[in-house]
Design a protein around this nucleic acid. Structure first.
Lengths: 341, 341
DNA sequence: GGCGGTCTCTGCAACGTTGTAGTCTTCATG
DNA sequence: CATGAAGACTACAACGTTGCAGAGACCGCC
């Protein structure tokens, strides 16, 4: 089978415990001994057995990232950022996706490949305040990402959804547009991204003293391109006049743009468009897409730091009373899709 | 701490081994006993400790997927497919990205979080035939994905790069276009995707009796949008006449399309464009992008099956003499970017 | 020269599980 | 009624590592 500490110990002529000490940088080891052990490790190509180590220490060095789906560019880029941040701390990342199905979201949470991970980063999608109980069932350290659903029970790192949406809408207003479609609303949802961004949209209009035309508030299923396209097609069919679109994420915006362009509208001349997320594609679409950069890198790094902190104090009396909320800085990125004449 | 088999055993009034037997579906257990154990498990909320189990059994139920980067839509969608296929077999996936840096590609391979994973799916990027030795160092079961670099040492699941590129080029030729840019070549590379796709391109032109104009063969760094854009800008600066582009992946095509459209060219009227990969975006760009669907789902499923097979026989005398190569079926998807007048 | 203290190294026991090799019943069979 | 086989369960020892508690060796100091 594979090489163990015993083999190294034999080769170096020391006890197995000394090998362990060398590996764990125990300070009191004679340099010559250390040297001998390291040479043996090298010669034999020894690699520690992570299962055994984690059985002993209770740590695996792996965290899981629970997200809806990787296909979605936003989550792919988020996962990328998380993995980079994790790598800086020597952590590996196990990704679990649950799709857009509430049931499997619950299932994934209930049965994380736990005991196998030290902590969880969970990007909430369907769960609402009623589901707080489910989070309590999970004893692992966990940090929530991206949405602002829960207030009490867990640490939370999120973007400024309301403020970002408001800034996006104000940006559009500053172009003189007044009939602004809000694309991506979710019926009745108040505290997820959809609800929060809609709130930001309303705030901006209110502040500008513009009455909200409810016909301009458009739902869109799962925030993919096809949903944006479908929503826009449905909207156009109603012939409600409009001169701008605030899409609640970039892919929705792309789907919608595509449909509008097919219909002969020019962007930004006829319709100004702004998205949300600042995915890479926004820089190369035609026109390039204005958007809100949610500060993904910052979110990822903050989340990892907090999670590590929680993992550190795991086992100690960790009452979650002190769960905190962190907001990343957002940034308005103006591109061609909202250029003024 | 957390609940172990001992707790369950005590609660059910049986030995710890019986609990283990129940969990592992050992056949000879009295139904009443089984019942009692299951109830105890449920009541205590017991979950087996994966570290301990894998220490004993040598299996972790986790495989790693080694890819360049998740930001890249192709790999995000590949990862998605792999995770779905893995989930069907109860496997979890640990993703490791190495960027576009040859050194870290080697580093990731050499130090997989091994002992922690049962096998590796490795999407080769920079490694060439000279590096075969590195693969030999890795004792874990491994399946190579996506490229056709190595012939001997490992199982390999790949798309039909040459044939796909040839089909793409022939599709363009069938439109009557003759001055076809090949976008994404890599200087001197012969056996990676870039080299193979270029071969397909040349074959198609040869077969049609058209001499290859080397000025139309354009390198592009890392196959991102920005590389496609930069390459196209550089190409346009040379004022070489052309009427079509075969891009070696979709994102390159998008970057290039964007630059051409900026320069006032119409697609497909002035320039026909076809990409490679069939990422979701191709369905919603303006114009929608014709492309080659590499059969990602099939690749993922095949790779997982083979890997599982190899994991099964791991430990048995597994000479890699019988390493095989599997080709997925590709599919030409014609969309607007190659529509004929 | 004796004494406490640091250095260097070691053995043992555990982490939670499962494979092996049992033991003790039960039951059908001759 | 003895015999063998199968059924239901269990004790023990591992898997490879690390924390703990030490054992000597060596040092400086009064």
């Amino acid at each position: 089978m594979s090489i163990t500490m015993h083999d190294v110990a034999r080769a170096a002529g020391v006890s197995i415990k000394t090998v362990s000490n060398v590996i764990n940088d125990y300070p009191h080891i004679r340099p010559t001994t250390k040297q001998r052990v390291l040479e043996a490790i090298d010669a034999l190509g020894y690699q520690p057995n992570l299962s055994a180590r984690s059985l002993r220490s209770g740590r695996t060095g792996v965290i899981s990232l629970v997200i809806p789906e990787l296909r979605n560019a936003y989550f792919a880029e988020l996962a990328d950022s998380v993995m980079r941040a994790a790598a800086e701390h020597g952590l590996s990342v196990l990704i679990e996706q649950f799709g857009n199905d509430r049931e499997s979201e619950l299932a994934v949470l209930r049965k994380p490949r736990s005991q196998m991970v030290d902590g969880i980063l969970y990007s909430v999608l369907a769960l609402g305040e009623d589901d707080v109980g489910i989070l309590d069932e999970i004893s692992l350290p966990m940090v929530l990402l991206g949405e602002r659903i829960f207030h009490g029970p867990r640490d939370h790192v999120t973007m400024q959804n309301v403020e970002g949406a408001r800034a996006a809408t104000e940006h559009i207003l500053s172009l003189g547009r007044r009939r602004i479609v809000a694309l991506g609303a979710h019926e009745g949802e108040v505290i997820g991204s959809a609800g929060l961004r809609l709130t930001g949209y309303r705030q901006a209009l209110d502040a500008a003293g513009i009455a909200v035309d409810e016909r301009l508030i458009r739902p869109a299923g799962t925030w993919h391109r096809k949903d944006g396209a479908a929503a826009m097609r449905a909207f156009l069919a109603e012939s409600v006049p409009f001169d701008a679109v605030v899409a609640f994420n970039d892919t929705l915006a792309f789907g919608a743009m595509r449909v509008m362009q097919e219909a002969g509208m020019r962007i930004p001349e006829d319709v100004a468009v702004i998205g949300f997320d600042d995915i890479d594609e926004t820089r190369y679409s035609l026109p390039t897409l204005s958007t809100i950069d949610p500060g993904r890198g910052e979110i990822a790094q903050t989340a990892i730091s907090i999670l590590l902190e929680r993992i550190g104090e795991h086992g100690d009396a960790h009452d979650m009373q002190d769960a905190r909320e962190y907001l990343s800085a957002y940034r308005l990125v103006a591109r061609e899709s909202t250029a003024s004449a």
